[in-house]
Structures are given as structure tokens and as C-alpha cells.
Design a protein around this nucleic acid. Structure first.
Length: 353
DNA sequence: AACTCGGGGGG
DNA sequence: CCCCCAGAGTT
């Protein structure tokens, strides 16, 4: 009985707040599972402001799951360029093909079926199932962790398996069974715009009297998170070849690491900062320059430091102007057709080919 | 359980 | 420098 009442009050307060404060976002004007799915994948670890233009561009180019399924992966990656976490794009495309060609175009319509899609985990399956199909499955994203940790004063680390279970269970107890779609979206919106990570607006918060963290003065200490390892330094030396017939060399990144299936200039990678002389020798001896006559120059004397969550890339670009043609080159005039990492894209934009 | 996977923005 | 973001997959 106490739980029932608590739940009632929580949702009443939340839904009132939401109806007064919700942003008008394009994916709130539809329950088309394809569009909701697309929005959820784009918004994984990505703020609305950053993801919004990509959502519009994807729907413009791929209005339905069939359009997406029939595209080449290279097209999908090109449209995803700049958004990061490129496995999302590869998995999105793979799942579109699965839906279009193996499920006959019928979009999975429940949590368990949705979970079978590549790139769809507990959060995304819950979001689509609740928003599109009114299934009572609570979402637990970064916003929900924060709101619940503060309101209920829970200090279990949110990025531990214990925390994941605990918060999922709590959210599932709190969710409004009559309107799971509205509950899920409301609690996330509340976390995103009011119960923010920094400087939450507690003075105007409708949950203030019931919020355990506020009443103990520990809002800033919650949620608790296990610290991530510090970023590692790596040293990237790219070889920008320019042939005498307007071509350069781009290589597709293979394998499991960062930027899988994106393109880059030939790369010499090292864990330590090699001495200039050693580097120069390596660049000159690189396979793509073998048996060629060229003039080598270092584009940036000071390293460009490209910062990612888990590694800092200290980068130099070497320009090799060839008095020759090259094998397997790509026209510099078509360089913008290739999906490249931001680090490469910035160079291409700045460098005057 | 720990690690990997991007890039942008805020303090 | 630190933090976070409508997380998921791999080891």
C-alpha cells in the first residue's frame, strides 16, 4: 500500500512536470517504430542537440527501414560521419537488412524481439517497446540513474552490474502501467533538463520535498560512478600522398578497433613519440612510396591532439608530393565521398589540396 | 567486471 | 583537467 501510494505520487508529479516542460522534438510526433528506433540509436551516449541534425538527415535519405536496408554500408557510414561510436551505424544497417529481408519488413513489436536486433540492448528495447507498443518496460538511461539515485538516495555505483539490476528493478516498480510511454519519456526529460548532472535546478523542482538527496544536501554527490581509466596517448602519423594526376591514397580501416570501416590516409601508429629522424625514415620507407620519386614535408610541426574518451591521439600529417602516378589511388576531387573520422575530416577541410 | 568504442560541450 | 551524454558489445 505504501509503495502503491508512493508510486502514484511520483508519477503524478512527474507527468504534471512533463506536460508543462517537454520539448517539442521530432521523434515525439510519431510512434513509427522505425523512426523511434533510429532516434534511440542516434541518441545513445549523444545529446539531443548533437543528434538532431543526424536524425533529420537519416529520415530524409532513408524514410523507411527498406530504404535503409537497400543502402550500402558505406553510404550509412558517410551519413553517420562525425557522430562517433560508428558501430551504431554498422549495427543499424545490419539490423535494417535483418528486418527488411528476414522479417519481411515487419518491425519487431515487443521487448524480447527488439533485443535480438544488433545494437539494441536493454535500454533501447525498453524505449521502443514502451513508446511504440505500450509495453510496460522501464527505461534506465543516464538520466534515469541520476533522478532515481538522487530522489531515493541510492549510492550503488550506476556503472556496476549490481547498480544496473537495482535501478532497473526500481524503475520497473515505479513505472506507470497505464502509460509506460509517457512515464519513460517524462523521467528522461526530467533528468535531461531539470535534474541535470551539474547545477540541477532544485529550487524550482516539484520533487524537492520528497527528494532524499536534496533533504540531506547531497544532490551533488549522486549518482555514484566508478571512475574510468585515464585516456592513453597514442601517436598517429598520417601519410598524405599527392600524385601528379590529382590522386591520393585512402585506406579502409579493417578489424576491431576504432573507426572500423572508415577511411584514412596511410597510418604509422606508435605508442611512444618517436624521434623526428626515425619517423622521417619510416615515412620515407613506407610501402605506398616505394620506388617513387617524391618531395616530403611535415604539414604540422606541433602535434594535433585529437581527444577521445579513452585515448588522446597526437597526430602529424606528412605531405608526400609525387612526381608520378600511384597505384589504387582515389581522386582528390572525390575525397569527400568517403566516410572519414573527424580527425581526418578536419585535415581535409583545412588543407589546401 | 573491466574494457572498448567518438565526439561535443560544460565547469 | 574533470565531468556527462535517451548504451551496447566484447573479453
Amino acid at each position: 500500500m505504501a509503495l502503491f501510494l508512493k508510486r502514484m505520487i511520483f508519477y503524478k508529479t512527474l507527468s504534471n512536470w512533463y506536460s508543462d516542460n517537454k520539448r517539442d522534438l521530432p521523434w515525439r510526433r510519431t510512434v513509427d517504430p522505425y523512426k523511434i528506433w533510429l532516434s534511440e540509436i542516434i541518441l545513445q551516449q549523444t545529446q539531443v542537440k548533437q543528434g538532431l541534425p543526424y536524425y533529420m538527415a537519416f529520415l530524409d535519405k532513408f524514410p523507411t527501414v527498406s530504404h535503409l536496408a537497400e543502402a550500402d554500408e558505406s553510404e550509412v557510414l558517410k551519413l553517420w560521419q562525425g557522430l562517433g561510436y560508428y558501430s551504431r551505424a554498422r549495427n543499424l544497417h545490419a539490423s535494417a537488412k535483418y528486418i527488411a529481408f528476414e522479417l519481411g519488413g515487419k518491425f519487431p513489436d515487443n521487448y524480447n524481439s527488439l533485443l535480438k536486433l544488433k545494437g539494441v540492448g536493454d535500454y533501447t528495447a525498453s524505449a521502443i517497446a514502451s513508446i511504440c507498443f505500450n509495453e510496460v518496460t522501464a527505461v534506465v538511461d543516464g538520466n534515469v540513474y541520476r533522478v532515481l539515485a538522487r530522489y531515493f538516495n541510492i549510492d550503488t555505483p550506476i556503472n556496476s552490474s549490481k547498480g544496473a539490476k537495482e535501478f532497473k528493478l526500481l524503475a520497473q516498480e515505479l513505472i506507470d502501467k497505464k502509460d509506460p510511454a509517457n512515464f519513460n519519456q517524462a523521467i528522461m526529460e526530467f533528468g535531461a533538463t531539470q535534474c541535470k548532472p551539474q547545477n540541477p535546478d532544485c529550487t524550482s523542482c516539484p520533487f524537492q520535498s520528497g527528494c532524499l538527496a536534496f533533504n540531506k544536501g547531497i544532490v551533488g554527490e549522486l549518482p555514484v560512478k566508478i571512475k574510468a581509466a585515464k585516456a592513453k596517448r597514442k601517436y598517429f602519423n598520417f601519410l598524405v600522398v599527392i600524385s601528379n594526376n590529382g590522386q591520393t591514397v585512402l585506406e579502409k580501416r579493417e578489424g576491431k578497433g576504432i573507426w572500423e570501416n572508415l577511411y584514412q590516409f596511410p597510418l604509422i601508429e606508435s605508442k611512444t613519440d618517436l624521434a623526428y629522424e626515425d619517423l622521417n625514415i619510416q615515412v620515407e620507407a613506407h610501402p605506398v612510396l616505394k620506388h617513387k620519386s617524391f618531395e616530403l614535408s611535415l604539414y604540422n610541426k606541433d602535434c594535433i591532439i585529437h581527444k577521445l574518451s579513452h585515448q588522446h591521439l597526437h597526430t602529424r600529417f606528412w605531405i608526400a608530393k609525387l612526381d608520378d602516378v600511384i597505384d589504387n589511388g582515389v581522386s582528390i576531387s572525390k575525397i569527400n565521398d568517403y566516410a572519414v573520422p573527424v580527425l581526418i575530416g578536419n585535415f581535409i577541410e583545412t588543407f589546401n589540396f
